[in-house]
């Protein structure tokens, strides 16, 4: 008993030492070595290597930064608005040459943008744009046209429905997230205006997560009756995979429904080829990461920049899913 008492603190201290050493080993993190860096740039991101998209977004971003002589300091707020606001305060205090902002929650970034403006630090947005009323506070946006992606997904569903009455369920992204809101609005607006034969029976957030999406889809199928559902829209491929699993769990063949999503990921692309997913919209994470730095560099070097540098929203169906130009990246 006494030996156990001695061993617990000792083992604990050893474990802590190990944790700290592993922390020190990784602490070099995502800052480039800066040996040939000309510009210091803070990238305030809501995700990093903890998400599949970030895993391929970050290397492309870092590689382009190294190529252009930009020293990047990257933060990850994990979609927490308070954490990102706090990261922004730190970034402004560090007085970098520019801040690249990927808003965790678009409605909450105005104070950050105002603080950067007051400190004379230019800001560009990546991946998720700021609200229209805040556009004057940024130098430009690069990334997907998130509203257009929702619309493109709706167009595919509308084409597949071919005017037949179609009841669908909708699985949205993380509540409050700018991308989730824009994709939803793009999809819903197009359906309401141009495809009135499609009816949304129910919608729930799937939190960009396969398991959450599977549960949400399963609940909605139960509440509205699976027999009444002819289609599913999910705001990304990870969530659509969860929805397809929910259908399979009920013995329903997914290819008998019209299912669309966004991403054309390594998870979604094979589903399109197999016919379980009717169509998805290609989003290139490497294009996104790379062009965030390109836009920043253009602003820093005084080159003219467009207000929006949109990633092309390419529709991917069974016809072109195996084309190398839309090979999935994440």
């Amino acid at each position: 008993m006494r030996n156990t008492r001695t061993m617990f603190p000792a083992a604990g201290l050893l474990a802590v030492a190990g944790l700290l050493l592993s922390g020190c080993a990784g602490a070099g993190g995502d800052s480039s070595d800066g040996s040939a860096s000309t510009y210091n740039v803070y990238a305030l991101l809501p995700q990093g290597t903890d998400q599949p998209y970030g895993t391929t977004y970050l290397p492309a971003m870092q590689a382009k930064a190294d190529e252009l002589g930009i020293k990047l300091t990257i933060t990850n707020s994990k979609y927490d608005a308070d954490t990102q606001a706090s990261d922004c305060e730190v970034a402004v205090a560090a007085q970098p040459d520019l801040i690249i902002l990927w808003p965790a929650v678009g409605d909450t970034v105005r104070p950050c943008l105002e603080a950067a403006k007051a400190a004379g630090i230019p800001v560009t947005a990546t991946n998720s744009d700021v609200n229209p009323e805040d556009k004057s506070l940024i130098k430009g946006y690069s990334g997907p046209d998130t509203y257009g992606q929702g619309q493109a997904s709706a167009e595919m569903m509308c084409d597949a429905a071919a005017g037949a009455p179609t009841n669908i369920i909708v699985i949205n992204g993380l509540t409050g997230n700018s991308t989730a809101i824009n994709r939803h609005d793009g999809f819903a607006d197009y359906i309401a205006k141009s495809c009135t034969n499609i009816t949304i029976l129910a919608e729930q957030p799937g939190n960009w997560n396969k398991d959450d999406s599977q549960i949400a889809a399963s609940e909605m199928l139960t509440s509205v009756g699976a027999e009444n559902v002819q289609g599913i829209y999910a705001a990304d491929d990870t969530m659509v995979a969860g929805a397809i699993d929910a259908l399979k769990a009920r013995g329903i063949d997914p290819s008998s429904l019209i299912i669309t999503s966004i991403g054309n990921t390594k998870l979604g692309n094979p589903l399109v080829i197999s016919g379980e997913l009717y169509g998805t919209v290609f989003q290139s994470s490497s294009w996104d990461g790379e062009n965030a730095v390109v836009l920043a560099y253009n602003v820093l070097t005084g080159k003219p920049v467009e207000e929006n540098l949109f990633m092309p929203s390419v529709k991917v169906t069974k016809d072109n899913a195996s084309d190398p130009s839309v090979a999935p990246e994440w």
């Binding site: 922390g23 993190g29 995502d30 903890d50 933060t75 730190v90």
Partner: peptide
């Protein structure tokens, strides 16, 4: 954060 240490490492 000022040192550019990622949140995962900060958590450690």
């Amino acid at each position: 954060t000022l040192s550019g240490v990622q949140t995962d490492i900060q958590d450690i």
